[in-house]
Design a protein around this nucleic acid. Sequence first.
RNA 1: GGCCCCAUCGUAUAAUGGUUAGUAUACCGGCCUUUCAAGCCGGUGGUGCGGGUUCGAUUCCCGCUGGGGCUACCA
Length: 471
Amino acid sequence: MERLRFAPSPTGYLHVGGARTALFNYLYAKKVGGTFILRIEDTDPERSKPEYSEQILRSMKWLGLHWDEGPYYQSKRMERYREVVGYLLDNGLAYECFCTPEELEARRKEAQKQGKPYKYDRRCLYLSEEEKEKLRAEGRKPAIRIKLPDENPDREIKWHDLVKGDISIKISELDDFIIVRSDGTPTYNFAVVVDDHDMGVTLVMRGEDHISNTPKQIILYEILGWDVPKFAHIPMILGEDKTKLSKRHGAVSVEEYKKQGYLAKAMFNFLALLGASYEENREVYEPEELIQLFDINKITSHPAVFDHDKLRHINREHLKRLSLEELKRELEPFMEEKGYQWPDNWEVVLELLRERAYTLLDFVDKGDFFFTDDFQWDEKAQKQWEKGKDMVPALADLADAFEALPQWNAENIEQAMRDVAAKKDFKPRKFFPIVRIAVSGKTVGPSLFHMLEAMPKDTVVRRLRKAASQV
RNA sequence: GGCCCCAUCGUAUAAUGGUUAGUAUACCGGCCUUUCAAGCCGGUGGUGCGGGUUCGAUUCCCGCUGGGGCUACCA
């Protein structure tokens, strides 16, 4: 039975990179009937914030990344870490280090200045009890370092990465890294090993930025005599400029995309296909399909640029697939935000609007005139209106014609419009856009006759009269 | 600087030791339409460079270049 985990640190919102890592773990676990564990890595008291944990959990739920176990919090497992450290210390596998961060930083800088690679020099490994007591008396609080095996510096730490293939690094590249801070809290490389072991994790799937941590962790497993899990490192997500995706690239948190009107399903779909593909000629999938299709061997080994255009396209496709009831439900928060009310014929309106909507936000932006009299005229509409000023008075005639219609339907509407245009000697293609602007404030939108049909007659007449009087 | 990872149209990807190097998106053009979309049709655009191996490399090997990651008492 495979056990996987997603282990975010609550130092910020869930961003799309983390979401994709979580997604791949989720897909893998679901595909093989394994367990998906959620663990919050909050060992850094400086940077971890509870509100971020909440935010991350919320984003994961929204995306449909449901975990089977957890969330576990590392901050609640301190006793266990102490226990393991005790074992390491008692057996001479780790040792206290009294060097301060400042001293270490200075040595690092010095080494850099001389162009030498920096490694901790193990000076504290050889401290006598008296010396340690003296340092303690000075008020120094020791950190704890792991003692790396040093019998063969040429020895290579290697593993077969499920995404990257064979990776190896000489043990001499590593140094005695800190596993417990002087305040007693464990560091990432230590806590992660203890947790993954305790939680029975069989496959560690995480971002590529963790590759260099992997050898350290493998050594820890070895020193502790524990089984080493499988590893899979998935490539980073990059921004348009091909550097690691970050805030300066614009929207990066899952929450933001939700606010911008993206469907959870679409995000799920897009992320699952970012750095993987399953069938030619197809890219729109339901989450269940992606679970069935998931194959870790299909994940590419190079980083991928986050393409907003593609996301928009995928979102549009999912928007089209929704039933009108589902669509209405998704739209509810956006309508509420704007203070809009649903018209009785909301189905007709949504049908008209969704043909050119990329996001949920488009419905309330591009379709504002369906929901309120207080809609905005966009810039193009203003300009075109100015150019067609001479036709504006005719809108009053059109209002009269509309009022006289026995039946408010597209055919009658079209006929009335053509009649008025003919009577005034206007070309339909010149006159119709003016009508559109008068009732919607836009130059583009749904089929005009059907759009008008979908609006209450009195609203249309009112807007035409108001516009006509603006000359 | 050191270590590690990576390299196919702008982007995401497919493919094979021999193909007209495919698909999607984006872009451009046409049809359609009152407009914008959608749809249909068509188009521009790619194997980073240099060596090998080979009858033949985009594919395999090496080097280079380029990009990315890590280099913390962050995760």
